[in-house]
Design a protein around this nucleic acid. Structure first.
Lengths: 283, 283
DNA sequence: TGGCGGCGATACCGTGCGGGTATCGTCGCC
DNA sequence: GGCGACGATACCCGCACGGTATCGCCGCCA
């Protein structure tokens, strides 16, 4: 029994489905099945009922789920305690000021309560740098959106938001309940300044170069649409101002909400924050 | 970071010596060094100061020792909880009635306090079966003495007691402060009955066949010496009755106090009891 | 001061285990 | 009865963990 095995079990017990649990663990299903069987042998108890109608927990499995969660939580706290004792006691989180995500503040609150001796700083950035200054070292963890150039960074997906076209309410297309990119051909789009991440620019342009006003932040995007009659894309799920509408786009890949950090960053505070992010966004 | 790694660290941190820690972990020193270095890299903190004058803990190491002990304790409890939830809630301990060992009762008390929902039964046996009925399944764990035939069993040493010759106080040899086997040549020794473990018989005979009265328990041994003028061996460390003396024997291997269980026994209660035994006897 | 011994680090090697892909067995369910 | 979903099994590969041999460094003592 190792911590890794327990993480496996928790995933299976929460998903009640080997395939989904394997996907969540970024591995394939057979080794996961084996690992759980091994755990059962090790503990000398049947943890799961496997039937055609699905997977369910035995009493022993229920007990283990409870205990394993507690143990893994303590293991995480251990990492942070050691890091604090070693002197590294602050971590800086970058959040993208896209106005759609309330998860970041919840995460910060949960982290503060769990690790009171760690100072957590939050730095909000505008839309011109989806990495929130991660590469430059301005932040240690970025809660942001894809897509962007990921070289040197490690990225974990937290959520995927479908995107829609942002239109003036009086736009002829604004009454449609969905649109495709073809409907928007030839329209002006708001632009990010030169020099920002090409993947990011291209995505929010709908995949092709466009003409339009340059913007740096959410409010500017909205103003650009209002004043100039341009269009743009935004994740669904937040309510736009009254004069604007967001119409779902059927043929655009969803925008991924991700947590990112520098690949190889050894700071355990970073890792613990990332893990907490994943669980907070999942639950 | 895995539980195994943390066990390694605890061993090193307690011994403050890589070689001794490796011995305690039944492994060689180089992989242990590597594992600790890996742990330091993983946690991003220096845990130990290595100098020619020895190994010492850094603040981070101190914090980790504390947290790791707690975590490993919880892991052990987890195993027991799961076993109990799975229905296996009693464990039987055999103790050898040799009258010298108070550790067994202390162990049972500690175990009961730590795992109140486990019923622990104690079964004391006489000197004719050093395995306390382990092979026959009468007990799950034996707290006993070596040497005995270990096939099918796994044995872990807890302590090693030097042995002495048991003599009547008026015996000419009783005034000596140490003896060798040669001094006792030709003397009658108390005997264990036919059929008991040959290794065990031979050891307590001092390695060669002897004549003498047959005994089955400690009191019978003592009476045999008192009444018949025979001699025998006993571990040092307990005070004999007034009329008897125990004189250290210089050329006999010490008697090992051991904990034993059936090899491959999957009962986690057994494993947890064994681990607790090792720590209780060490501390 | 130079030889020696103790001890942790390093180099190198082999094996077992944890990961992968391909496929099977066995249920429900149209 | 065929099919699809899903967990189990078979088989393979690479790496990490454990081993032995040796080094480097420091302290100690003659």
């Amino acid at each position: 029994m190792e911590l890794r095995t327990l993480r496996y079990f928790v995933a299976v017990a929460e998903e009640l489905h080997f395939g989904r649990a394997a996907a969540r663990l970024h591995m394939s299903q057979p080794p996961l099945s084996r690992a759980i069987r091994g755990l059962e042998a090790d503990l000398g108890a049947v943890l799961l009922h496997r039937s055609a109608s699905g997977v369910s927990l035995t009493p022993a499995g229920t007990a283990l789920l409870d205990e394993a969660r507690a143990l893994l939580g303590r293991a995480e706290r251990l990492r942070v305690r050691v890091a604090v004792a070693a002197g590294a006691s602050t971590v800086t989180v970058g959040i993208l000021g896209d106005g759609t995500d309330r998860g970041a503040t919840r995460l910060a609150a949960v982290y503060r309560r769990r690790h009171p001796d760690v100072e957590i700083r939050v730095r909000e950035t505008d839309l011109t740098d989806p990495t929130c200054g991660l590469r430059a070292g301005l932040v240690d963890v970025a809660l942001t959106r894809g897509p962007f150039d990921e070289t040197g960074l490690t990225v974990r997906e937290l959520r995927a938001d479908p995107v829609g076209a942002v239109l003036r309410a009086d736009d002829p297309l604004a009454r449609r309940d969905r649109l495709s990119m073809a409907d928007l051909a030839g329209r002006r789009w708001f632009q990010f300044p030169d020099g920002v991440d090409p993947l990011w620019r291209s995505y929010w342009n709908g995949g092709e170069p466009r003409e339009g006003p340059v913007v740096r932040a959410v409010q500017e995007c909205l103003q650009a649409v209002l004043w100039n009659g341009t269009v743009g894309m935004a994740p669904l799920g937040h309510t736009p101002p009254e004069e604007l509408t967001v119409v779902p786009l059927t043929d655009m890949a969803p925008s991924r909400v991700v947590v990112a950090w520098r690949t190889g960053d050894t700071n355990p505070l970073v890792r613990s924050l990332v893990r907490l992010a994943v669980t907070v966004y999942r639950g």
